[in-house]
């Protein structure tokens, strides 16, 4: 800042006493057009209505909890914790144990993760780090198209295309080569746990890969450049500069996929075989919590039967809530609270 005086600019300020005549005559305006009293009531009403809508979302969740808790009351009092630990599901004798369904849900979901995670992360890495820009949009659009296909259509395809392939080619091959593990034994029906896991995997790939992609894109560019500058190959850059920094977000994406797999109903119901048994072999038929609801809810005649089914619904609800909340927090920790662009 220079300290010596700057010559004052010359001003010809308008003189308040005389004023200056305008060149263009402004047309006369009348008194304010809108001079009536303004009521504050409509504003308050509107704000109230919008608040109502917002809190209605919370109300919906509360309503879900209420319905499930009330509905499952009978079964809870009849069986207590034993409900989740026994595997006898017998409507004729009014004995209900949910273990086979819990087992089937967990195994089919975990199996789907084993298949879907490497594929989804691979796709996400390819799209964000390797793909030419021109291909990027098409690839992400196509993978998202997978998410637009309804569950029942996946099921239809699985019954008539996937299951025969499994029965005729995949299962005999797996039985021969990996039968010794005990996971791939028994007659190759096609239908069963393996088919459910595969169709679930196909269904959750779009979710996991699109969120992973989102997480990868927020990894700052300088992390990549830092590793490249050390003379790393591209893969080393991806491994050290990108994947390591996005770890928590990718785990979140995977858990979100798990949440979807746990609650998925139609496609699984159509191919899992629907038998409440716990078997080690993935060729064997199974049953999930969601599919027993789909199959038996409308046929449940006794009060206790219906209540037991609702209790399965409650358990499914609680598990998916916990899983989803966990996943959201992990994704947020990476994207720092930016609203997710993916409507999952």
């Amino acid at each position: 800042m220079s300290n010596h005086a700057v010559p004052r600019p010359r001003f010809e300020a308008p003189d308040p006493e005389h004023g200056t005549k305008a060149a263009l005559k402004i047309e006369d305006t009348t008194a304010p057009l809108l001079d009536g009293k303004v009521s504050e009531v409509p504003d308050a009403l509107f704000a109230g209505a919008m608040r109502f809508c917002g809190f209605a979302v919370v109300g919906l969740l509360a309503l879900i909890v209420y319905q499930l808790v009330i509905g499952s009351n009978l079964s809870w009092h009849a069986f207590g914790w034993k409900f989740f630990g026994t595997s006898d599901w017998n409507p004729v004798e009014d004995q209900y144990g949910a273990l086979p369904f819990i087992y089937g849900t967990l195994v089919s979901s975990l199996l789907s993760l084993v298949i879907a995670v490497p594929l989804s992360v691979g796709v996400a890495v390819f799209i964000t780090e390797m793909s030419p820009v021109s291909l990027r949009g098409i690839l992400s659009f196509t993978t998202e198209l997978l998410a637009a296909i309804p569950s029942v259509v996946y099921g239809l395809w699985a019954i008539f295309v996937l299951v025969p392939i499994l029965r005729l080619y995949v299962q005999p091959f797996l039985g021969k080569t990996l039968g010794w593990t005990g996971l791939f034994t028994g007659p190759p029906y096609g239908i069963g746990m393996l088919a459910a896991g595969i169709i679930l995997a196909i269904m959750i790939i779009p979710i996991i890969s699109s969120i992973t992609r989102e997480v990868l894109t927020v990894v700052p560019q300088h992390q990549r450049e830092g590793v490249l500058a050390l003379g790393a190959t591209r893969w080393e850059m991806i491994r050290m500069g990108v994947l390591r920094n996005a770890r928590a977000g990718i785990v979140g994406a995977v858990i979100l996929g798990l949440g979807r797999a746990l609650g998925e109903t139609m496609a699984v119901t159509m191919v899992i075989g629907n038998r409440p048994e716990i078997a080690k072999s993935l060729f064997a038929p199974g049953y999930t919590m969601a599919s027993v609801l789909a199959n038996e809810f409308t046929e449940a005649t006794g009060d206790l039967y219906l209540s037991a089914l609702i209790e399965i619904g409650l358990a499914l609800f609680l598990v998916t809530i916990v899983v989803n909340a966990l996943a959201r927090l992990m994704v947020w920790s990476v994207t720092r609270g930016q609203p997710s662009k993916t409507v999952a």
Binding site: P9, F11, E12, A13, P14, D15, P16, G19
Partner: peptide
Amino acid sequence: NMQQAARVAEF
């Protein structure tokens, strides 16, 4: 912008 103030305003 001081010049602007000087050009348009009485106060």
